[in-house]
Amino acid sequence: MEEVSTCLPMTEDVAWLRVDEAAEVGRVRRAATGLAERLAFPGSRVAEIGLAVTEIGTNLLKHAVEGQVLLRSVRGEHRAAVEVLAIDRGPGIVDIGLAMSDGQSTTGTLGLGLGAVARAADRFALSSTRDRGTVLTARFRSHRREADLDDGTTAGLTRPLGSEEVCGDAYAVRRAPGRLTLMMCDGSGHGPLAASASREAVRTFCALPGGGPPEEAVARVHEALRGTRGGALAVADLDLVARRVRFSGVGNIGASVIADGRKRGMVSVPGVAGYQARTIKAFDYDLPPGALVVLHSDGLTERWQPDDDLAEQPPLVAAARLLRDAGVRRDDAGVLVAVAR
């Protein structure tokens, strides 16, 4: 019997916005409220998002170093959400509990108004490390009584190179009972043609019948990428019952299992999906409960090592920390994280 699986919800990274001048706080607010309006949020919810994002942007301006806001849309079949990510390299928050109290401020990043932001959001997370910076994530559904769009076990991020408007990296997640299947594609080069290749990889992957092995998915996507720029490609199939991950990759997609504070790399074979992939293999790895599975493009260095608490973070926070700490500036960057609950 064919496995029932879905790629929904789909997440789009709409805009990365730096916050290093006062005028940029207003720019972030307008972009966030404009996104909520395009997703048909009611006016009262749009206003709440505007206030929350203004608070986030103001505190980045006051306290952050290299502060940025990422605005994202999360779309299901009939519902959508706005997701806001704030990331910086500031001094960090010494006492998060105190910072969450109303009326409190801190010499670290994002100290004022955190409690109000958390109350306005439907999903909120915060991670701060002294002298390394802070990551804040907040998801806003259109109506507070709606069920969430996913269970929070996976999250990905993409960031385009420099002034490029589109990122050549893309990812997708298929969900089925007891199983997660992750796909990451790094389109060759950067810009619109690289993005076109990675979008085709996502489209093909999500259209595949469920239940097939990852090496078969890689082979099918490889064929679909002929006529595009091609790229690096990897698929990881997480069996949450048998506690195994089967991985197949072509090219330089970094892939790891993080468990017990240790990072175990997974093996890709040489090649370029869409051009040359003479050998497509799959390898099996243990998947302990609570382990993280990480896929990333070469926009992140493979030399990163997990912090002691990385596996304890929500996947979106973990992805943001990896992008901040391991991301290099000379290429598009994409990272996808799943927790094996």
Rank of each mutant, 00 (worst) to 15 (best):
C167M: 09
G212M: 14
R220I: 00
R145M: 08
R244C: 04
D237N: 03
L157A: 05
G178A: 07
A217W: 15
S142K: 13
M184H: 11
V202K: 13
A195K: 00
R139W: 05
A170S: 15
P213F: 03
V166I: 13
R199V: 03
S163G: 12
A219C: 00
V173N: 04
R226V: 06
H222A: 11
G178I: 05
L161D: 01
V135H: 02
S188A: 15
C167Y: 07
R175S: 14
A224E: 08
D169H: 01
E223G: 11
E200H: 12
T158K: 04
A236L: 06
G231I: 11
G191T: 07
A176K: 05
D148L: 14
V218R: 04
R243A: 11
E200P: 02
G187M: 12
S163F: 11
L193D: 15
A217D: 14
P209G: 02
R145P: 00
P160S: 03
F205L: 10
T154M: 09
T153Q: 12
A236W: 00
R139E: 14
L149N: 10
D150Q: 09
M184D: 02
A176G: 07
M183Y: 10
P160D: 11
G231A: 04
S198Q: 03
M183E: 11
G230S: 10
R243T: 03
T181D: 11
A207Q: 15
P213H: 05
R132G: 00
T134F: 12
G156T: 08
S188W: 11
P214H: 01
A201R: 09
T154N: 01
R220G: 00
F247A: 00
R132T: 04
T154D: 01
Y171N: 09
E200Y: 03
R220K: 14
T228H: 15
G210R: 12
A147V: 06
L180Y: 13
D151S: 12
A234W: 00
R229T: 08
S248V: 00
G162S: 14
S163T: 13
R174Y: 10
G152D: 11
A219D: 05
V241P: 00
T158Q: 06
R203H: 13
M184A: 13
G231T: 08
S198L: 05
G189Q: 07
P209R: 10
P160E: 06
P160T: 04
R244H: 04
A170C: 07
F205T: 03
P209A: 02
T204D: 05
